[in-house]
Amino acid sequence: MSDQAASAVSQAIGLGKHVTGPAGGLTILAGLNLEIYAGEAVAILGASGSGKSTLLGLLAGLDDPTDGEVWLCGRRVDRLDEDGRAELRAGQVGFVFQNFQLLPTLTARENVLLPLELTGTPDAARRADEALNRVGLSARAGHYPRQLSGGEQQRVAIARAYAPRPAVLFADEPTGNLDQTTGEHIIDLLLDLRQETGTGAALVLVTHDPRLAERCDRRLRMHDGRLEPLA
């Protein structure tokens, strides 16, 4: 393992993703390098289809690269099998999705409890309640996702993502399905909670939204399968 990889919570080295479809081969990512350090917020911008979500999936160990290495919390993800990656994600990685992805059959509180219970956190219930309280949804803990508005669902998803105090949080277009006011509230929550959890979680944000990107420590643009820093 490289020294750099040891100090970065997430690192991609020479990362490539190539897919073959009926119309021939397509290179989505090629020779991409990236390091994300504890506590920093990194925004990844880019046009639709530029490969932002693919990169996010690879960094989080949700997909296999065609070339290169992916490191997450000091372990080489692309060498792990699916259960090894699941074990790594449990507790270390949080997710916030564009379409919220709450489990429809669980209440808000049970959704937040889920990752804590998966990792066997001893005071899971208390931490879930705290997280819901922090996103201002204590009163709606017993509601099911279908009974919540889009913004409320995303706040539950944020509480779920931060409750296990992850080392890194991946957010895929977290405001993409929300109106502007709600979106801003969500951005506040994402950034504030990162500070408050006290774990110095890194935040990797894939977004179209320049206002959201403005508030991050670093901004990178996806272009032709590579990342370019933005001023």
């Binding site: 699916e82 699941a86 997710f95 489990l103």
Partner: peptide, 15 residues
């Protein structure tokens, strides 16, 4: 979707 999310959250396949 629910199973995909649980896998994202770190639930191993055997579980």
């Amino acid at each position: 979707d629910a199973v995909a999310v649980m896998r994202c959250l770190g639930a191993p396949r055997h579980l």
